[in-house]
Design a binder for these strands. Structure first.
Ligand SMILES: [Mn+2]
Ligand SMILES: [Mn+2]
Ligand SMILES: [Zn+2]
Ligand SMILES: [Zn+2]
Lengths: 147, 147
DNA sequence: ACGGTTAATGCTACAATGTTGCATTAACCG
DNA sequence: CGGTTAATGCAACATTGTAGCATTAACCGT
């Protein structure tokens, strides 16, 4: 009997009290395996590659559920499409970087927008979203290459 | 002959080299008259109130054109709908505040997200978007009122 | 003021993204 | 293993935004 991996997808899902289904496990593992955030199409493509059956609506609901449970977090890109990444935002709000060249959205865990600004009187902020736009490190290296 | 008001909507539009049409004038004046940002439906409703004929697509193109010309700026809310406000972003990127209670999006001209953070090596940011979420000053005053 | 040129508009159809309702399946529990 | 019900699959719909193309009207020169 292997030691129980308390950080495995199935284990995390079970800890939320929800049912541990093939779809939830597969989707969460896909998010965990990806260094960058993924939109619905990205996840669907990976599910298909794994030979997993998948319904468009179920995927929406699964991703929303993972966010609700704090197992993933979501950010809305300038293409008005949601992108997802494993790991919640317990109290650690972090900035994101949207590369205009390759379209990828990366997490900048080191940058915390909260507690950095003082708002005008009366405003009661609960969270802050900070998104940079420009050229990512990868695309900056091979400059001129039109990804 | 009245002194030429160089900040009037018609004058600003003419200065861009584009044709000065009823729609462009009306839309820009609507944006100029509003203290908060407006989405397409907001603008359409005001056009209708003014008895102006308006087509959905024309409104999209008009607003996009105003942004292109630097006469308005756009921000994408968490409801993935674009909101517009008069005035461009010449070099003055400013933060925005999205009220979770009333849904309004306000400009925080005093807060400039750029030149505030140092990104990891390799990243080349060109602009930064900073959006706070919470309760706005108006909604904070009449707390408990469920707008 | 008039007519020609063409940018801007109106209209239709379409695309992308996300939601709702409901019947069916399968995860869990005893 | 069988019953309960959360999760899924499916179809239809909603919202937001685009593309193509015929028509209108803003502008310019006369
Ligand atoms: Mn992130
Ligand atoms: Mn603004
Ligand atoms: Zn890139
Ligand atoms: Zn408010």
């Amino acid at each position: 009997m292997p030691a129980p991996d308390t950080s495995s997808a199935a284990h995390l899902i079970a800890a939320c009290g929800g049912r541990v289904t093939r779809t939830r496990i597969a989707v969460l593992e896909i998010l965990q395996d990806s260094p960058r955030s993924l939109n619905h199409d990205d996840v669907a493509a990976r599910l298909a590659a794994d030979g997993m059956p998948h319904d468009r609506v179920t995927l929406y609901r699964t991703l929303d559920w993972l966010v609700e449970q704090g197992l993933a977090h979501r950010i809305i890109g300038p293409d008005r499409a949601r992108r997802f990444k494993a790991g919640g935002e317990p109290r650690s709000q972090h900035a994101h970087f949207h590369c205009d060249r390759c379209g990828h959205v990366l997490c900048l865990e080191s940058i915390r927008p909260d507690e950095q600004f003082t708002l005008p009187a009366g405003y009661q902020p609960e969270r802050a979203e900070l998104v940079f736009h420009g050229t990512c490190a990868d695309c900056g290296r091979q400059r001129g290459a039109k990804v």
